[in-house]
Structure formats: C-alpha cells, structure tokens
Design a protein around this nucleic acid. Structure first.
Lengths: 151, 151
DNA sequence: CACAATTCAATTGTGCGCAATATAAGTTTG
DNA sequence: CAAACTTATATTGCGCACAATTGAATTGTG
C-alpha cells in the first residue's frame, strides 16, 4: 500500500461548501442589516412568510435546527414584537409561532434581498459578481468530487 | 410591474449551501469525536499538517476566519498540548503557531477522515450515501441558479 | 528622528449551533 | 386507569463566528 498523503484544505469539498456558506453570509449581511436581521433570523422569516403559524418543531425540521437554537432566536424576535409564541390549545407541548403585523410588514422590505434563486432571478443583482465567481468555483469542485466517485 | 412573490426557502441557493454545510459537519462529527476535535479545529490541523509554523493572520486568511475566532480556538489546542503559540522574534506583532509532537502524531489517526476529496477519493466511504444524495441535490440547485443567469 | 498611520493579535459582547439534560404534556399498554 | 413510554420545548454549557475596540509593534513621512 502506497504511502498515504493528506489532502490539502483546498482539495476538501467540505471546506469549499463551508467557505461558500461564509461568503453568502457576508454577501447578505449589508442587506439584512437594513432590516436588523441576522441570516438565521431571515431564514425563519422566509418560512413564516410562506406559512404563518408554525410550531417550533416544524420550523426546526424545515431549517435543520434544534430547539436549542430556535427557542432563543424566536424569543429575540418576540422581544422585538415581530412574532408571537403561544402554546397550542389542543396540544400544550407545542408552541406555535405567528407573525405580528410588524413581522408581516417586514416582507415588503425584504423583496430585494434574495440572490441566486433556483429557477428564479439568477445572479443578476448588483455586487453579485464575486458571489458568482465563488459559486462557479464551488460547482467545479462539486463536479470534480462527484465524478471521482463515478469512475 | 407584476406583483412580487418571495421565493420559498427551498428555492434559495444560499440555504442549500447552508444546509449542506450542516450535513457535512454532522457527517464528520463521529469521525472527529474519535480525535476529540471539532470541525473548525480539524480545518486548522489540515492547514498545519500541510505547512507548520504559520501566523494567526495566515491561518485566518486560509480559513476565512478572524482573530476573534482563531485566538481562542488555538488557545484550546495549546491547553491540550497539540500546538504552541510564540511571538515571532523579528516581528513581535505576529504569533506563530507550531505543532507539537502530539499535534503531528494526530495526523496518522486522521487519514481515514476526509470524504469527498476533489480529484481524489470521491465519495466511496461507508455511510457516504446520504452525503452523496445531499451533494447531488446541491449540484442540481447550483446548476439551476447559475443557468438562470446565463439566459 | 518624531509622530502619524498601519498592522497584528487579543478582548468583549452578541448570536448562532448543538449535545445533554430537564420538564411537562400526551400516548400506549398491561 | 396507572405506569411506562414518547414527544415537544426549554435550559445549560461549550465552541464557533464576527463586529468593534484596544494595545502593542512596526512602518511611513515630514
């Protein structure tokens, strides 16, 4: 058996994904600052704008997050008057999250934020150039890693 | 101008990348637990195994992290005797990170960890099936978003 | 050379992200 | 129907991640 060599970090697909995630967060930051939302908070609103009145569990399954992350996040939004939390009347284990008027109104100010929507607007926005480069690089790496498997 | 609609979270490429990053962390977790390393700590070692004796700044540029993240992370590794931190003699602003023998020895135990190496081993490991599905889905979404731009 | 500007790392504070645990509500079973 | 089990959320503790600030070392400039 040949002497093993460790891949460099730039050859690791996991790192490419990790770094692209950071790049997205940086890209969205100035836009989200205008709404005073963090990126995970924005994801919560994307879910709520699509379907209001969801349980913590449903939210967690949608976002792949657990209650240890969601509960304090939602409480911060509640403290700002953007959502309400109330126990379900029929099953008091569940907590249902609902948008307030302020939370609904935020939607109108968020239309200009999404970048790189699948089958949607693409990457046509201002300042998307660097992000596009990043995504092209990620696709190339993804292809390289997935095709290595196919052989 | 038509009435605007907000994309669903599943149509957002940023979320696909974000979720895939989480999936990678979960995938690596049991393997890294065996070395008692977190994923970001593992990334630091990948850099150090490739090039020992690097400054905090160089490490940060490689990993896209700042000193607020790296300094405490390195201090934890130092407390465990895996690395040393020493001011550069010629430029005392810089702190150079070096592997100890224990840190170097960890490398031998880490060969089996990497998954999805670009132009490398592919996705052939045990338990990689779910990860492969995840990555194929990400590629499809990446293609859809990038081609929307090309039109 | 003095002093302003820059660079590097560390610190502080806030917000994820998750494992482990706790608690209460609901469900199943003998 | 009571005990065992399961489910849903909350809490605690630890480790990132990053903005803002600080402090020390170095560099640039008149």
């Amino acid at each position: 058996m040949a002497h093993q060599t460790m891949p460099t970090i730039d050859q690791m697909l996991c790192f490419a994904v990790y770094a692209t995630g950071h790049a997205f967060t940086r890209f969205y930051k100035p836009r989200l600052d205008a709404l005073d939302l963090t990126y995970p908070q924005y994801l919560v609103f994307l879910v709520l704008w699509e379907q209001d009145d969801v349980t913590v569990k449903a939210l967690g399954e949608r976002l792949f997050l657990d209650s240890g992350t969601i509960t304090p996040l939602i409480k911060r939004l509640e403290a700002r008057g953007l959502v309400t939390r109330r126990r379900d009347e029929d099953d008091e284990r569940q907590v249902r999250i609902r948008l307030t008027k302020e939370g609904r109104d935020l939607k109108a100010r968020a239309f200009s934020i999404p970048l790189a929507v699948i089958e949607g607007t693409g990457l046509t926005q201002d300042g998307a150039g660097a992000m596009r480069e990043e995504l092209l690089a990620l696709r190339a790496r993804l292809d390289a890693a997935l095709s290595a498997q196919d052989k």
